[in-house]
Design a protein around this nucleic acid. Structure first.
Lengths: 203, 203
DNA sequence: TGTACATCAGTGAACGCGCGTTCACTGATGTAC
DNA sequence: TGTACATCAGTGAACGCGCGTTCACTGATGTAC
């Protein structure tokens, strides 16, 4: 239980500088444009320093993704104004997701495109970030579907998320069969409306 | 208008052998496991021969994807038994999609994960493969929604496809927030049902 | 507080390797007469 | 049909390069007395 030493502080500082730099690079060049030399250059340290402070590049990327998930969580939370019906709350979450993806395209897509090398596991603390996201959907959905068990509720929340995600994904990728980008909002709204239509809209 | 010479035939033969080999490698090792040396080895030709017959590896991959899309199209067409209502037809298409993705995981994911280098365009003949897929959804959807214009119909068909795709994608990736795999079928069914619920189900 | 020693973070040149692509050569196929 | 020449598909060793990661060295920070 000692106070943090100067070394500790410097280490923490370097970590955040590296995460900042990696985040910036992913935001501007995309995940595939992320190079160790660029990141360390931006962070103002030597190439080797990265490996003192992170396991490797993948580890650093996971830290960026964790930060992105937290930012997304805050954006979604901000959509949940007081007095929304559960159905309105879900619609607002979906629109919040669309907005976040549009405003943070490369960081958002890094979330889904980052692949760990064969056999490497995603750390638990990062999985918890995912769970927190689903929790935000479960809360209003539970009010709408008091008939469902907790498990079914989580399952349906993930399906709802995945469906909205799919629409945003194919639209933003711009190739394949996606919708035009200016239609994403209304299409997602129609989708969520359909998936919550005819359900008791209790407070 | 000459008859194909022996050279022509050999060239065509090599092309199909290479596509076969690449397809097999993608099926077994995934897109990232595809190496020029493996493919040419499997096809029984020298490394350099690939570049006589295809532009480069990307070109070869596009040919594999085109074949995959055609196979998917046939699978989906096979679900369209006589006498299905439009709503049933759409449900059957969705289940067909789930089945195809499950049975051809790596080829299916190659369809969406293959990225062309900066500035390179997908050839038109391959875009036509995509359009044919959407057409299969538009046909029954048009019966269900006679009120929509052609454009809106296509837009809604793409949204329906994207939503189903998202659910399958996140479930099959197994990480992030996907549904468990044995639940994909019922979740997709619920999704499609919701998106077609309450609509006139005319023949 | 001051000095001597130990530790370990920071450095960046060098390593290593994977792998797509090229290219000079050869030999089979096609053409002209 | 046969011969001489031209073409161009097939070959695989070599090229090139990008880039993550290491590692021997240095110098700043921490510890003991």
């Amino acid at each position: 239980m000692d106070l943090p030493t100067k070394k500790d502080l410097q280490r923490d500082d370097l970590r955040t500088r590296l995460i900042d730099a990696a985040e910036g690079r992913i935001a501007s060049q995309g995940l595939t444009g992320l190079k160790a030399r660029d990141v360390t250059g931006d962070a103002g340290c030597a190439l080797g320093a990265l490996y003192n402070v992170f396991e490797d590049l993948d580890d650093l990327i996971i830290h960026v993704s964790s930060r992105t998930l937290k930012k997304m969580g805050s954006s979604l939370a901000a959509t949940q104004e007081k007095g929304l019906t559960p159905k309105q709350a879900l619609a607002a979450l979906a629109q919040g997701y669309v907005t976040f993806a549009l405003n943070n395209r490369t960081l958002w897509s890094a979330l889904f495109n980052h692949r760990l090398p064969q056999g490497r596991q995603v750390p638990d603390w990062h999985l918890a970030d995912h769970a927190a996201l689903i929790k935000q959907i479960v809360t209003p959905l539970a009010l709408l579907r008091p008939d469902l068990t907790t498990d079914d509720l989580h399952l349906r929340a993930r399906t709802l998320f995945a469906a909205v995600h799919g629409v945003v994904l194919l639209a933003l990728e711009g190739r394949f069969v996606g919708a035009p980008q200016d239609k994403i909002g209304t299409e997602v709204a129609a989708l969520v409306d359909a998936m919550t239509r005819g359900l008791a809209d209790a407070r």
